[in-house]
Design a protein around this nucleic acid. Structure first.
Lengths: 207, 207
DNA sequence: ACGGGCCTCCACCGAACGGTGGAGGCCCGA
DNA sequence: TCGGGCCTCCACCGTTCGGTGGAGGCCCGT
């Protein structure tokens, strides 16, 4: 019997998943959580074989939840089930140790198979997700540093170099340096292009 | 008996909604659709009292679906149930004739009450949605003209004034004039801020 | 026919931005 | 310990951008 913990902040989705899994003889829903903290607590408590979790949640986000569960319940395999297929989301979830990444339009049969695979320790990716990961590896644009992303965030909100410098407590020259690095890394010319490109890549959230 | 049609491209959500409504004596799920076209077809066929629909769907998007259903089945009230609470989404849905706008984290009791209210022709809005609509009416930033939106599109892609002028077959001075108008209308300073603000407002699509 | 948006364009100016070529300090892994 | 990435900052320059104050032509509704 595969013991499953369902994590999602939407009651509708929890109900739907529980209903789907209830008819499978070898699956048993042992608990439900509405946010990340509750998920970690229940995972530590129940030691489920598979945690079926959304990424966007209150209190503790998906990536943090995955990391924590890997710590407190290392035998549990976390399967991400989400609507969002942004590059950054996928990458971070997989890096955090997700056993798989499925989208919410996954057909029922595929979902239950994925849960069984995850319980055996296999990695399951939705086709669309796999494609993105491959593309990601292919055109390997250099990663921005944490500070560069900070600058990009502030600039995206419309700040001038001087305003960004003030907000980040650094000199204006430094902001310009970071921006120039960002431009070359993203292969663009101009702050506006950098912002939209970064949104495409999921480096900063689209508004 | 209130007859309900469920529209969502995620099987999980459809299952969850159906499960939630099944236990209500006065509600009956008469059909489910996975995309907009199917929704319109079923609405015309089944004449449900309430259509519970997502906004993001394949084939025909939420707004188009609402418009079409209003045409082919005017007696049906469409209740939007979605994860997204973007300004533009809400406004367009309500303009298209939605009877209400709920978010997917709506508790079960509120949801079923909303369906009953919608079947009586009442308008139901999630608190967060209502707040946004009010805010929208308050700081009533003037609408951009079609040409201004054209300019904004090109600028959002990272074009300089000169490049934008070339792409739109107008002079650079004209681009600058449009941009200045855009800045005052959106209440921002700088092209980058204009782009992100326009994305927030749904004037141009977020990447 | 007249006013009023909308789109187009001009000249001009100061400020901000993009770009170059540095340099020093920090920390981490080889 | 010694490189190497990262963050920080400087001076300087040319270009672009933001902003002002116009102006003419177009179409639409009154």
């Amino acid at each position: 019997m595969i013991r499953v913990l369902i994590v999602d902040d939407h009651p509708v989705v929890r109900e739907g998943l529980a209903g789907m899994l209830a008819t499978e003889d070898d699956l048993e829903v042992v608990g439900q959580a509405a946010d990340g903290l509750e998920a970690v607590r229940l995972a530590a408590d129940l030691r489920p074989d598979v945690v079926l979790s959304d990424l966007r949640m209150p209190n503790l986000d998906g990536v943090g939840t995955i990391t924590e569960i890997a710590r407190v319940a290392p035998a549990s395999h976390v399967l991400v089930l989400t609507t969002y297929d942004t590059d950054a989301d996928i990458l971070r979830a997989v890096e955090a140790g997700a056993a798989g990444y499925l989208l919410k339009d996954t057909p029922r049969a595929v979902l239950v198979d994925a849960i069984r695979a995850a319980s055996r320790g296999e990695t399951v990716l939705a086709p669309a997700v796999a494609a993105r990961l491959v593309r990601r590896l292919r055109d390997t644009h250099e990663a921005l540093t944490a500070r560069e992303i900070d600058v990009l965030h502030v600039v995206a909100s419309g700040a001038s170099n001087a305003q960004a410098a003030a907000k980040l407590h650094i000199g204006e020259a430094t902001v310009k340096t970071h921006l120039l690095h960002i431009f070359t890394k993203l292969g663009v010319e101009g702050r506006t292009a950098a912002v939209t490109r970064a949104m495409e890549l999921g480096i900063i959230p689209a508004p």
